[in-house]
Nucleic acid binder design. Structure first.
Lengths: 341, 341
DNA sequence: TTGTACGCGTTATCAT
DNA sequence: ATGATAACGCGTACAA
């Protein structure tokens, strides 16, 4: 592989000039530029990214840490990730997928991270990924609320989860439902903590007692119960325990489909017997389902875009003011899975 | 950020020794190791990844190029990507998500790629990503058949797509279907070319004439028709053109759901009036659907794992023989969406 | 424009 | 067998 000196020699210019031709940091005369480019093409030369990074101290890559221990995306993650990649590429940045917790097992953090900043998805309480970023002085943005003991504030982009869950509860309660079942995300995720609090709050506001069968948390992704959690809980609560639940709130589309199946197996119908609401579901899936499922549009793409923009501000790629904690709008999309009783 | 000299000075050893403590390339005495690590912890020192890469000429990252211009994954991609990340991390490698075609617009290839190798997903005919890899001398593995004019063979992992489509056709034909409709992937993808050929072959083998309404290709991802392609084609062919199609083969789960909807809107039922077969669908989605959908299990995780292993062989991280072109098994999973007529 | 001193580790060589 | 020394990798940036 040709290097800068080879080009400099053949083009009869200095290294610095070749560097300038490529980086455009200083003007170069037309003729020289031509000559250098011509030689570069001949030698198939491109500047070495690593050598460049060593001096500029920029890798032009951002990390994207995916959920703790998760090797499973749902539609929300997918759309989010796509938006991040696209938006980052717009500023010339590449995206490095990270799974710090998993890697720590094999490769105990034996070198610095080759990234300029990071987007941390779905933080958990005392998220070690965040501690690591903090320690490594890597600028980062979280998507979701940070709940780490030693970190009092961090840049973040998020939905208003308190408002989300309370408005869903109000929506269902207004339709006459008083016995709700909430299939929440995994209990370690900060979002689930906020939503549980919101759920309890909403129940409280309507003088409805919160019973144990009303709130459930998704099992850890590594467990066997993960895949059919929605199915299992629905069968258990409505079937075995015979609780008179009339509406179920499912955390994501996968859980919702699983619940739908359980309801069918119990000989019940949606929405006639049971109403079903999905918090974060893929739009096209919600529509294709039968019946179509009412859901909350969390705008995952917008979350992705804004988190990258916020990070770019922290990296000084973008100038000007930008809120450190941005809230992305969400709204209820009514479809056919919730009925009035 | 502390550097190696700082540690060396405080630990009263030389740079080289500190380097050896971290890289383990040469043994170091117990005491010295302790002293160096202690000082490193105190200074919060970790070797600079970039500087290390500059000399070792390894970035410990592999690229993963996602489908041409695609900012939309389906379940197949998701599972594949997850497997790649996990398997790569097993060898200490990180994964850099790539979208060369899109980036080329903004950042015309002005530096070398900071990756040691790459996995190229879903190649197209004359895929420029592959040409670029070839040119840049970057070891790569494709997932799918390569059809580039100037490249006669490349390392790859793939399903046997010819066998896949012919066995699906035979399966349906055995059930009495003779008027099939095949909703294929985008026509640029090499996989769609192989499958179209296979489809025609299978029809030919059963003396069934291939009519124009039988084969369709998914529109480009950027087009408006992308999202409801399955719906639109089904309505058009079965509704408007009144073709007596009795079985539909859908390329992926999204298309399948979309088709399912169209069938419902046409007042028809699956599988009583129309049979539906999905080529690559997320297992849990196929099961949750009503009726559950018969599909082909392509083993996306296995494809991901094996493509990384093949790449690791090319990078000499793994030693020993490994087939340059590995075929991953696939098999029909019968569910409730296909009936005999 | 050119010359040259960096940046920050690694590794080959030499010394103990 | 370990430790120390110095050259090296490949660009960038700044003074001349």
């Amino acid at each position: 592989m040709a290097k800068i000196d080879d080009v400099a020699r053949l083009a009869k210019v200095s290294k610095g000039t070749v560097s300038n031709v490529f980086s455009q940091k200083r003007p170069t005369s037309k003729e020289v530029t031509e000559r250098v480019m011509s030689v570069s093409r001949k030698l198939n030369y491109v500047p070495n990214h690593i050598a460049r990074s060593l001096v500029t101290k920029k890798t032009m890559a951002i990390g994207l840490t995916i959920p703790h221990g998760s090797f499973f995306f749902n539609a929300f993650h997918t759309q989010f990730i796509n938006a991040v990649i696209l938006e980052a590429s717009y500023y010339g940045y590449r995206v490095l997928l990270d799974m710090i917790p998993l890697q720590k097992v094999k490769t105990p953090f034996l070198s610095s991270y080759p990234i300029d900043g990071a987007v941390v998805m779905s933080p958990t309480t005392d998220d070690e990924r965040i501690d690591l970023m903090h320690l490594g002085q890597i600028p980062f943005v979280t998507v979701g609320k940070v709940m780490n003991a030693n970190i009092d504030h961090a840049a973040s982009v998020d939905n208003d989860n308190m408002k989300i869950i309370t408005s869903i509860c109000n929506y269902l309660i207004d339709k006459g439902h008083r016995n709700l079942m909430f299939l929440n995300a995994n209990e370690l995720m900060t979002v689930s903590i906020v939503r549980t609090a919101g759920f309890i709050q909403a129940m409280h506001d309507h003088q409805i007692e919160v019973e144990p069968h009303m709130i459930h948390h998704k099992p850890a992704i590594l467990s066997n119960e993960y895949m059919d959690y929605g199915y299992a809980e629905t069968i258990r609560v409505l079937g075995k325990l015979k609780k008179q639940v009339t509406a179920i709130i499912a955390d994501d589309d996968r859980t919702a489909f699983s619940v739908l199946n359980a309801i069918k197996d119990l000989g019940l119908r949606v929405p006639e017997d049971i109403s079903l609401f999905v918090i974060c579901g893929d739009l096209s899936m919600m529509v294709q389902s039968n019946p179509s499922l009412s859901s909350m549009d969390l705008q995952p793409s917008e979350l992705g875009i804004q988190s990258v923009r916020l990070l770019m501000h922290k990296l000084d790629v973008l100038k000007g003011d930008f809120p450190e904690n941005k809230i992305i709008d969400s709204k209820i999309i009514e479809r056919d899975s919730c009925s009035t009783i």
